[in-house]
Amino acid sequence: MRAHVALLTVTVLIAGCAGGSPGTADSAAPPTVVPQSAAPQSAAPAASTASNVSSPGAFSPTDIAWLQLTAAMTQRLLPVLDLVPTRTTDPTWRRLAAQVRASNSADLTRSRELLGEAGAPTTNPHEGHDMPGMVTADELAALRSATGNTFHRLLAAHLRAYLTQTVRVATAEQKAGTNPTTKTLATTLIHTNQTHLNNLPNPNPNPRPPR
């Protein structure tokens, strides 16, 4: 009967390792979840069959894939947020960066804990991948050398890409995941990162230089 079960995976993990430049996430299609194999016409419905295969609370491939992607994306963002206090004195940007860092660091810690509970590899399967919402090494270098309005503009683009994409993939997990705790984390992430996205200011045309 196992052969009749359609194992689910997040499509973005297979086909999304492409561009990671700011703004890519806004134009990328929302991640969908598709079966790796289709069940025969004579097979029993996948939902009823799956209940015989996975115990309640078990981690599905979709759960693990989402947790790994969330951790990888957040690890790329934290160095960006760490630059904010040294690149601007604008209180709005500094406050938002601190809020994004606090909530997403907590989500990263929880993602790692759940991966440990699932017995998933601790290594990052997305190392070197440039996916929507992931800041590349070159982009981080550009941020490190930027000041004033240029820094605000780049920061806004990276935050928008990251927040948009994390909400999209968390929505996919919320719809197709199976582990209740993991889906709860996805719900929390959607709420907090959508709030951060709604509060994202426009780059200040006349920023104060850092002291």
Rank of each mutant, 00 (worst) to 15 (best):
V53D: 12
T164C: 03
R112M: 05
A106S: 13
V34Q: 09
N179F: 00
L8M: 11
R160L: 07
K175V: 01
N52H: 14
P121N: 09
H158Y: 06
D130G: 08
N202Y: 05
Q75M: 13
L200T: 07
A98F: 05
N206M: 07
M73P: 00
A97P: 09
L163A: 09
N206Y: 12
R144N: 13
L154D: 10
L78P: 02
E117H: 10
S60I: 11
R95T: 15
T147S: 14
L115P: 01
R2Q: 12
N124M: 01
L69N: 01
P61G: 08
A120I: 03
N204C: 11
H196K: 10
R168S: 08
E117G: 03
A176D: 11
R95W: 00
A43E: 04
L115E: 06
T147R: 15
Q174M: 06
T74Y: 05
D82H: 12
V80A: 04
A141T: 13
P35G: 06
E113S: 12
T192V: 01
T49C: 05
Y162T: 06
L154N: 10
V5W: 00
R208H: 15
R160F: 04
H191S: 14
A25R: 01
I64E: 09
D90S: 14
A157R: 00
R112N: 13
T164Q: 11
A44R: 14
H129E: 05
A44I: 06
Q174V: 00
S111N: 02
M131K: 00
A47Y: 08
P205T: 14
T166M: 10
I14Y: 06
G128T: 05
T122A: 15
L115K: 00
P40T: 02
G119Q: 10
P180L: 08
A98S: 15
S54I: 12
L185D: 00
